[in-house]
Structures are given as structure tokens and as C-alpha cells.
């Protein structure tokens, strides 16, 4: 497209004093024309960037340590509540703020119950060990937000979500609910404690 191309679009008014063509009026009869050099370049660059964004997710599957969990199962809320209660009774080592504290064995399935308005139990984990957190809700939808590392997952009643975590730092890490779950949404918290 040479410099003349600049004048093709819009340009001088057609005979008869009509207003010049714009985005608000029908385009010229033939409105398909070759791309200008800058448009063509941008289109190629933009499409390549889109492909990079797309393949980036697959690349991260290969190189990243942080992956979106996909393992999940159907489970009734009553079955989940019963299994979790049994687990908590087996592993409970204490109580904090009225919530049972549980010390899981590394590698095992660890139940974490979201319900209005509490995450139960408080977990005491060991650093650099991997745990399978089995997360579900016994009532409405909740959001599991692990702070301050800021990992966030959706918790649905009727669905068991298996989230494998490997804490790599020690300390106390709060859990907050970040899916609106009712008028007590802002008191729904929990805790994970990581020790050496």
C-alpha cells in the first residue's frame, strides 16, 4: 500500500454535498482491500503472541511446580462429612480456637472441610512434605484461599477436589473463604501450620 492508500478511506465528499463516509454510514461498495504494511506486521506479531500465550500453558505444565489440580470425584455431602469426621477423630492432636488441630502423616489423604462458616480442621504439616488435601463443602459453595502465598480454589458441595500441596516455608498460614457463602462470609477462616 503506497502513500496513496491513505486517501482511499473516507476522503473527499462524494458529489451532491453528502456527508463524507464514516463508521456511521455504509462503507464503499467494495470494502475489502489489501492490508497495509503496518497492519500486516501487527496482525502477524499479534497472532504469534496469541500462540505464545496458548502454548505457554502447556510449557508451564512441563516446567512449573505450580499446576492447577485436576483430580476430582463426586461425593455426597453426608458421605464427605462422615469420612472427614472419622479422619479428624483419628488424627486429632489438640484444639485451637474451638477448631480441632490435626497432624497428618506426609503423603496421606488429608480431609479439609469447608462449611458455613469455618474451615475444619486446623492442619499441622511438615515443611517440604507433600500432602493430598481432599477438599469439599458440606453446604454451599466456598472459596479456599491459602494466604499469604495466595493460592485459590473453588470448593463445591458434591465434588471432592484433590489438591496436592508441598509447603516450602514454615509458619502459620491463614485460610480465608473468598466465595460469597452467606452473611457470615467474613468470619469464615481456617489455618495451616507448617513446621520443620
Amino acid at each position: 500500500m503506497s502513500a496513496a492508500g491513505v486517501t482511499e478511506h473516507g476522503g473527499s465528499p462524494p458529489p451532491g454535498g453528502e456527508p463524507p463516509r464514516s463508521t456511521l454510514t455504509p462503507p464503499p461498495r467494495v470494502w475489502w482491500k489489501r492490508l497495509g504494511p503496518d497492519e500486516r506486521r501487527w496482525l502477524i506479531v499479534a497472532f504469534v503472541w496469541c500462540l505464545v500465550l496458548f502454548s505457554g500453558m502447556y510449557v508451564w505444565l512441563g516446567i512449573g511446580e505450580q499446576q492447577t489440580p485436576i483430580e476430582s470425584y463426586r461425593i455426597t455431602t453426608s458421605d464427605f462429612a462422615a469420612e472427614a469426621d472419622t479422619y479428624i477423630a483419628d488424627r486429632q492432636v489438640g484444639e485451637q480456637d474451638g477448631v480441632p488441630v490435626v497432624e497428618p502423616i506426609p503423603g496421606e489423604d488429608v480431609y479439609l472441610v469447608a462449611s458455613q462458616f469455618q474451615f475444619r480442621p486446623i492442619l499441622r504439616l511438615q515443611r517440604d512434605e507433600t500432602y493430598r488435601l481432599l477438599v469439599s463443602s458440606t453446604d454451599v459453595q466456598h472459596g479456599l484461599s491459602l494466604q499469604p502465598t495466595n493460592l485459590n480454589f473453588q470448593v463445591l458441595p458434591g465434588y471432592l477436589y484433590v489438591i496436592r500441596v508441598t509447603p516450602d516455608e514454615t509458619g502459620e498460614f491463614p485460610l480465608v473463604c473468598n466465595e460469597f457463602c452467606g452473611l457470615g462470609h467474613h468470619v469464615m477462616t481456617g489455618k495451616i501450620i507448617v513446621e520443620d
Binding site: H9, R21, T23, W32, L35, G36, E39
Partner: peptide, 9 residues
């Protein structure tokens, strides 16, 4: 009073 440089795009 303008329009896109390439209507088709």
C-alpha cells in the same frame, strides 16, 4: 469523521 484504515479487517 473517520473510519478504520481497513474496513475488512
Amino acid at each position: 469523521g473517520g473510519r478504520p484504515v481497513n474496513e475488512g479487517l
